[in-house]
Nucleic acid binder design. Structure first.
Lengths: 339, 339
DNA sequence: TTGAAAGCGCTAACAG
DNA sequence: CTGTTAGCGCTTTCAA
């Protein structure tokens, strides 16, 4: 049992070659004779030789590794994005080092430091929702490490060493509400999230503008700001039930809030979608499992991940790509189909 | 704008010190005068000095990094496990490098190579469900890299350089079915997954034994083997409806199959849980969103992740920890509560 | 086509 | 308390 891993020098010694030749042989350098290459490769196979990437990276000044920093990987969306990132990174020959900030600025800062220490060649990040102070991102810029934001973008951070990919929340909301109008709904409520997150501001604006585009004006009583949870949705539903006139549709800024509200209204004898139609946002897995299945807006997580890596790749080649805004996709299901 | 990152040597030069002293100062070594430490730290702060961990690791022979290889990070379970791993690794001062095999043996092999090249100190892996040939795991053993399996364990791979943590599927199923019996159910169906996966064999055995423990014998017509999908569950439900006598409970080996079946039986006018009770497996997020909320077996993903890291940590300290089998937890919800 | 030599940035004896 | 020295394992000129 070999205790220590075989090194390049070991191979060289047993073959009676120099380290440089062995190195070149393994790299398939053209100035090495086929015979030598064959000998080297065979021994390498036999010994299960693994090149020490640490040493190679140190010498070469390039690690071939990208850093990823996400708020978390629970739920539906971020796993999809990470999957997209991993796929595209592998395709381009990059390794990926992943960390989570757990929505915490301190962990975000520490993890950015960690990634830079590890000499990643670039960083892909989705900002924690508690982040106010952005000094740690300035530091990344100062160190000259290319940076791509995805989904949660740091506004006003553009420079020639960074880029961003996000989704058009406004457009997603606009289409969702337009669809409800097309289905004949006229009193459309909006379950809105806290305005501290820009996604919620954008989605609400999409709601307002879609109504206006068709000549309707939003009833302020129908916009309810809640925690984007099942309980929040349920509470909003209770509030709607207390109104003099019930809404005939609900657009919720997340799927889970939509379901929370839908359950309460159903329990009160309202039929979905005949009496009240429902649209959520995010296209969570469970949207096909609810009764009826929930119409929702898909955020194209996987494509976002792939795009983010492509942008970073461009930055690494000295280009300065423009930020990309992906178009979401409305997935119509039974909760809005009034046939 | 500093093009190049500051190095230890740079600090040493501008301070008129030797590299070693600067190194020691930054490591808070006790043999450095407080005054010197202060000077060094201040300059390091000013320059935003980031130690090159590559060089440090190469020199030290330790990377402080653990490798993680999961089949995927979609869905509910693996993200939870990864979260547990990340949390515990951070607590113990390890970095984490994560890869996905996408349930593919080739990617699994390549990723194991990658992790070993990167000189991770140990590897945490959940085996791809297509893996038959296990030569690549033998190679990890041969290179002397400590290995911990989680959830999907490679059977018969035990050695003093590896360990494993899994969940007691048998016990989870046993408790689920015992609970149904306690609720008065007598004709309990089992929606079983393909026997190629050991988890399904174990869950089925738990089902059989729970019945037997109470003096009942399983009706073979009530065990239906399906794809563990919503459609599979729906198909199974159709099959159950064709039986001369309907079941009064369904135990499904996954939540999604349970919901698929539940939807169909509800549509046929059966009441849940009065006419037929339902139990799933995995405690997916949506189990609280179905109507009624679905009783399920929680797999303790986060705890599994934390445990896996602890086992690896023990291996790294030269101990040989015994494999751990976590006990799942039955979460009783409305789909089985017959009041 | 191959080898010798230098060095990536850091740490850890060993001396002073 | 601080400096000198010697590498970690690899790649890459430059020279043969």
């Amino acid at each position: 049992m070999s205790q220590r891993r075989a090194s390049l020098a070991d191979l060289a010694r047993t073959l009676g070659l120099s380290a440089s030749t062995v190195s070149r042989a393994l790299a398939d350098h053209k100035d090495v004779s086929p015979a030598t290459k064959a000998r080297v490769r065979q021994l390498a196979d036999e010994l299960g030789y693994q090149p020490n990437q640490l040493a190679a990276a140190l010498r070469r000044g390039r690690t071939n590794t990208l850093g990823v920093l996400v708020p978390h990987i629970r739920g539906h969306f971020f796993p999809l994005v990470v999957h997209g990132i991993a796929t595209e990174a592998a395709r381009l020959g990059f390794n990926v080092m992943m960390c989570q900030s757990n929505e915490d600025v301190d962990q975000e800062r520490r993890n950015l430091d960690l990634l830079m220490n590890t000499q990643v060649e670039g960083i892909l990040v989705s900002v924690a929702n508690t982040t106010q102070d952005t000094a740690h991102f300035e530091e990344v810029r100062r160190q000259g490490v290319p940076l791509v934001f995805f989904d949660r973008v740091l506004e006003g951070f553009g420079n020639e060493q960074s880029s961003a990919v996000s989704i058009d929340d406004y457009q997603g909301a606009f289409e969702a509400v337009s669809h409800l109008l097309a289905q004949g709904c006229r009193r459309i409520a909006h379950l809105n999230g806290p305005a501290t997150l820009s996604i919620h501001r954008h989605r609400h604006q999409g709601y307002l503008d879609a109504l206006q585009a068709q000549g309707f004006t939003a009833d302020p009583a129908l916009t309810i700001t809640i925690d984007m949870t099942q309980a929040g949705g349920a509470a909003a539903a209770a509030q709607l039930l207390a109104l003099p006139a019930l809404p005939d549709a609900v657009f919720a800024s997340t799927d889970v809030a939509a379901v929370g509200a839908m359950q309460v209204l159903k329990k009160h004898g309202l039929r979905v979608p005949q009496d009240v139609a429902f649209v959520g946002f995010s296209n969570e897995v469970f949207t096909t499992l609810t009764e009826p299945a929930l119409t929702s807006v898909d955020q194209r997580g996987e494509q976002m991940g792939r795009t983010a890596v492509q942008l970073l790749h461009q930055l690494l080649q000295g280009e300065t790509p423009v930020p990309i805004v992906l178009q979401p996709e409305l997935l119509v299901r039974d909760s809005t189909l009034r046939g």
